[in-house]
Each structure stands twice: as structure tokens, then as C-alpha cells.
Design a binder for these strands. Structure first.
Length: 150
DNA sequence: TCCATGCGCGGCC
DNA sequence: GGCCGCGCAGTGG
């Protein structure tokens, strides 16, 4: 497995389009096939996908309030527990502290005027501005991570 | 080890 | 043709 890359993947400039998560993964733009956050707790996060999977996401175009992962029931996909600051959530927090760039990808399933019509689109580098936890729509605590265009 | 913001397919309208 | 729900697959963090 190649080393984690922070920043642009040279062969895929901002605006590059992908048919599927498998294509994104092969390109190295976002490796995980399902998970929305790529990263490690020690190194930080290198990319995220916005695909409408979490109800608390907000997309303002040059700013996105991304929701952390975890706390969901595997079958229903509904939030059934508090999220913790571990795994991908902690990776993003680390990126925030270190000021590391994060590749942002939008998918067609995202409910936003900035979502692509189909497939996935690489929308460039963002910085994780901050992170805090708050009660989400479900009533459970979710991590909120505003990322801003840079 | 477990989890993760998929995906194709068949049924239905 | 589009939407929805089911079930499965399979890799990286």
C-alpha cells in the first residue's frame, strides 16, 4: 500500500470526476471503499467524502460542516448512540491542529446545490477549521467538523 | 478486530 | 425509466 498523501493527487486536478467509490480508491484520491473519512489517528486525515450519509452535514460551498462517524445502527443506519473522538474523527481533529490539507469529494447522493449530478467529484483542498460535539437531529451527540476551502 | 457516507439487482409502479 | 429495499461483497483504517 502506498504512503498516505496529503494534498492534491497530481494526476487528478480539482474538478476530476469519478464513476464510483472503486474508481476514487484506485485513483488514490480517497482509498476507503465505504468509509467517508480516510486517515489515521496519528497522521491525520487526508480525504473525506460527502455523500449524504449523515443527516447533520451542512454544505455551504466553500465551507462544509462535516459530521464525524460512529454511533449508528448497522442495519437501519440511524444514529443510536453518541459519537466518540476516535478513528476518523480523531484523524480529522489531528488535521485541524496540524493545519493539514484535506481532499474533499462530493457525491451525487449529497443533498446540496453543490453536489454533482452523478458519480463523485474531487472539489479540492480544505482545512479543518475546528471541531466540537453537539446534539444532532437524532438527539445523540455527534462530532461537527467545519472544513473551509483554502 | 470491527467498522465504514456502496453497489447491483430484482420487483414494482 | 426511476425509485426502493434487500443482501452481499470485500478492502482499508
Amino acid at each position: 500500500m502506498p504512503e498516505r498523501v496529503f494534498g492534491h493527487i497530481p494526476a487528478y486536478p480539482e474538478g476530476s470526476r469519478f464513476e464510483s467509490r472503486a474508481e476514487l480508491s484506485e485513483a488514490g484520491v480517497h482509498r476507503p471503499l465505504i468509509a467517508g473519512i480516510s486517515g489515521s489517528e496519528k497522521e491525520g486525515a487526508d480525504s473525506i467524502v460527502l455523500s449524504g450519509g449523515y443527516e447533520d452535514d451542512e454544505d455551504l460551498g466553500d465551507e462544509v460542516v462535516y459530521t464525524g462517524h460512529g454511533g449508528r445502527d448497522a442495519e437501519s443506519g440511524r444514529q443510536v448512540a453518541h459519537q466518540r473522538l476516535t478513528r476518523g474523527n480523531l484523524a480529522l481533529a489531528h488535521s485541524s491542529i496540524e493545519g493539514l490539507p484535506v481532499r474533499v469529494i462530493r457525491g451525487a447522493n449529497l443533498v446540496s446545490q453543490y453536489a454533482p449530478r452523478s458519480g463523485y467529484r474531487y472539489d479540492g483542498l480544505y482545512l479543518v477549521d475546528d471541531y466540537w460535539h453537539a446534539e444532532g437531529r437524532s438527539g445523540f451527540r455527534v462530532w461537527r467538523l467545519p472544513v473551509v476551502c483554502c
